[in-house]
Every structure is written in C-alpha cells, then in structure tokens.
C-alpha cells in the first residue's frame, strides 16, 4: 500500500500580526498532523505500507516535510517553486495532482482544512483533478475487501455520512480522529540522514481567485464588560444572574 500525505506549512497561528509584515514563524498545519497520524496507523496495521509526505512551496516548507519524516513518514517530497505569496487551493491541488498522477498511490490524505486560509478545498480538488473519488471530514475509515474503503464523514448536527469508496481515493481527515504522535528519537535521527526528494514545480496554473486584502475584524464587545476587582465582578455577575432568575 502506498500512501501520500499532503502537508502544508502555515504561519504560526495567533502571531500573524498584519498583512504587510512577514509572519514571524511557521509550523505544520495542525489538521495535516491528524492526516499523517492516520497514515502512520495504517502503516502499522498493514504490511508493506509506505508513507510519503509532500508539500509545495519555497525552500522553507522543507521544514514541515522534515517534521513529517520525524513523525514517521518514510520519504519526503518537495514540490519546489520560489515564490513567497500563498498559492490558492486550486494551484496547490494542481501541483500535487500532477506529482501524484503516475506514482500509484492507493490513498492520498490531507487535513480537512488549513489553519491559515480555512478553505477546505485542496483535498477535494486533488481528487477532482485526478478523477479519484474522495470523502471530506473523515472521522473513521477501514479498508474492506478488494479495493474499497468504508468511510464515515462528520456531518452537521451529529450526523455521520457512511460511504463506500473505491481506491485510489482521497480522504480529508477531520481533527480529533486520533492523537498525533510526537517525533521519536529514532525517527528524528533517521530523518536527519535522509534527503528530501525535490522536484521543480512546472506549469503552475494561474490562480482563479486572488486575495486582495487581509484585515482584522476588530473585537467590538456586544455586551457589558464587567468592571472592578475580581471580587466585584463576581458579585455583579451573581446579581445579574439572580435578576434574570437564572440562579
């Protein structure tokens, strides 16, 4: 079994100050850690399974590929393009799909969304470009007879969509499905030795949409901000709850 996990490098959440300043740091997209963990769990269950981690972007994204290898991915692939501005989900999906097309992956995994743009598109788009079936927001899955998977998607109002899906397929993994592991010392040492395979991104398609502005919505409290010392606030709150017959 060959599994490809797509990992994205995102700005460190909460510290991205303003649109005109470079972000102070980067990390692996948290949702992709769940996807990687699912791949590693499959590798532990199924013999002869290899897990590849891929990311597209400038040199700096090799840090998250390395991280994926430290967590346990067998190989890392870097689709290189030297351009700092963010690619759109469609552009990334195109790059990853053209990388994956002839490499016979049985399952391609992504996180359900990215911490930064929160668009929930890339996985479905990779599938669409490759003509593979997919399931998004996956919360459980198992490989069944032959080349099919049984998958459950998380849906609104505590519903689950249960489906059968042919392999090769793309699954976008919802958070909470597992507890992503920390890198082990042996994997850290192995990753240190190992080279990341690098290919140049060819034919980057034109973006179909552009981000024209990034702005802070501002925090305008709607209600009353209780004032005073901690104790005064506690007293006020109890009075309010009492008046409203909630206590």
């Amino acid at each position: 079994m060959k599994i490809l996990v797509c990992v994205k490098q995102v700005s460190v959440p909460g510290t991205y100050p303003a649109a005109d300043k470079p972000p102070p740091g980067f990390r692996i997209n948290s949702y992709d850690e769940y996807a990687l963990e699912e791949a590693l769990l499959l590798k532990e269950r199924i013999e002869k399974t290899t897990v590849h981690a891929v990311s597209a972007g400038p040199e700096r994204v090799t840090a998250v590929i390395k991280r994926a290898m430290e967590m346990g991915a067998d190989q890392g692939m870097h689709i290189r393009y030297e351009q700092e501005e963010q690619l759109t989900p469609y552009q990334v999906a195109t790059l990853i799909a053209s990388y994956a097309r002839d490499r016979q992956y049985d399952i391609i995994l992504t996180g359900v969304m990215a911490d930064d743009d929160m668009q929930m598109q890339t996985g479905q788009m990779i599938a669409g470009i490759l003509g593979y079936p997919y399931a998004s927001s996956v919360v459980s899955h198992e490989i069944r007879e032959g080349r099919t998977m049984y998958v459950e998607r998380e849906c609104d109002a505590r519903q689950r969509q249960c489906l059968e899906i042919e392999m090769p397929c793309v699954l976008t993994i919802q958070s909470g499905i597992n507890r992503p592991r920390y890198p082990s010392l042996s994997n850290i040492l192995r990753a240190k030795q190992q080279k990341i395979e690098s290919i140049n991104a060819l034919d980057l398609p034109e973006a179909r949409e552009t981000e024209v502005r990034l702005f802070s919505p501002g925090i305008k409290p709607k209600g009353t901000i209780l004032q005073g010392t901690r104790r005064e606030k506690a007293v006020q709150l109890l009075e309010i709850l009492h008046e409203k017959a909630l206590l």
Binding site: P13, G14, M118, E209, T210, E211, V212, R213, F215
Partner: peptide, 18 residues
C-alpha cells in the same frame, strides 16, 4: 469581493474571483 475568515477568525480575507 467575498470575505471569509482566516486564522480562526482572527483575520478576515477579502477575495476577488477571476
């Protein structure tokens, strides 16, 4: 332009379709 949340809603992005 279409506005959606990014970074858990700490920022909003304004996007134009082409």
């Amino acid at each position: 332009a279409f506005v959606h949340e990014v970074f858990d809603g700490r920022l909003y992005a304004e996007v134009v379709s082409k």
